[in-house]
């Protein structure tokens, strides 16, 4: 698919339009806020997971290896 596309696109390369993106102080400020919100979401979830005992992708190993039954949360009982 990629090679086919490149072939077509090389043929279309000259058909360009003079239009750039829209930059205003408002959209830039909003963009920065969105980026910050995403970062806060990422680290907020990390903190929340740590509080629940989820540390990294191998968190469930420790329960399996110790062989101890961990109290199940309501959502995993369903």
């Amino acid at each position: 698919m990629m090679f086919e596309l490149i072939q077509i696109l090389l043929e279309q390369a000259n058909q360009t339009q003079e239009w750039g993106p829209v930059y205003t102080p408002g959209t830039m400020a909003a963009g920065i806020i969105i980026a910050i919100l995403y970062i806060l979401l990422a680290f907020g979830m990390e903190m929340y997971d740590r509080r629940r005992g989820i540390i990294g992708c191998q968190w469930h190993h420790k329960y399996i290896e110790k062989g101890e039954e961990v109290k199940k949360s309501e959502e995993s009982k369903s």
Binding site: M2, L5, I6, I8, L9, L10, Q12, A13, Q15, T16, Q17, E18, W19, G20, P21, A35
Partner: peptide, 23 residues
């Protein structure tokens, strides 16, 4: 770059597009 070409973007817009993709 492939999408930019297919949509008829000029080089300046493609440059912006690549930056947005990295972010």
């Amino acid at each position: 770059l492939i999408i930019g070409d297919a949509l008829g973007m000029d080089p300046l817009s493609k440059g912006y597009f690549v930056s947005y993709v990295w972010m």
